[in-house]
Simulated assay, not measured.
Amino acid sequence: MMNIKPSAAIRKNYNEISELCKRSGEPVYLTKNGEGDLVVMDIETFARRESMLRLRENLVAAEEGRLNGKPGYSIDEVSAMMKAAVREVLDGQRK
């Protein structure tokens, strides 16, 4: 579900918006004069999204390298990289 609030809500209801972000794990979209203006999310959600983006970037780079003839990785190497990525995301959730 998309959470949308007017921008004035951040000044008036900071604690409520903060709690909504933390409870839902979703961003809150703020509007100004009826138009999209800002997106607010709690730091854990932000960190988790950043970790997932880095993982995706690394996977795309590896696939591009493979398609361009670069040497690949063994199953054990890929398994170790995936475990490290999962640990990074889980550690970000615990903070």
Rank of each mutant, 00 (worst) to 15 (best):
Q93I: 13
G25K: 03
I4D: 07
D37T: 05
V60W: 01
G34T: 07
R87V: 12
E57Y: 03
M1G: 14
S74P: 10
Y14T: 06
R49M: 14
L55E: 01
K83P: 02
N58Q: 15
A9N: 02
E19A: 15
M52G: 04
P27Y: 03
M81E: 02
K22V: 08
E57A: 14
A84P: 06
V78N: 02
K32Q: 13
K12V: 00
N3P: 06
G72A: 05
K5H: 11
N33T: 10
R66A: 14
R87L: 14
A47H: 02
A84S: 11
R87C: 11
E44D: 01
D76Q: 13
K5E: 10
I43V: 15
K70W: 07
L55V: 10
M81Y: 09
E16P: 03
S79F: 12
E26L: 14
A62K: 01
M52P: 00
K70A: 12
K70P: 06
G34V: 01
E64P: 01
K5S: 05
E57T: 08
D42I: 07
K12N: 12
L20E: 13
A80H: 04
R94G: 03
E88P: 00
G36R: 06
A8T: 09
I17A: 04
Y14E: 08
I17T: 06
V40W: 03
E57H: 13
E19L: 14
I10Y: 10
G25D: 07
N68F: 00
M81G: 02
N15C: 07
G36V: 12
D76S: 12
M2Y: 02
L38D: 13
S74M: 08
L67G: 06
N15K: 13
D37H: 15
Y29A: 07
R48C: 12
R11Q: 12
I43Y: 04
L90V: 11
M41R: 11
K83N: 09
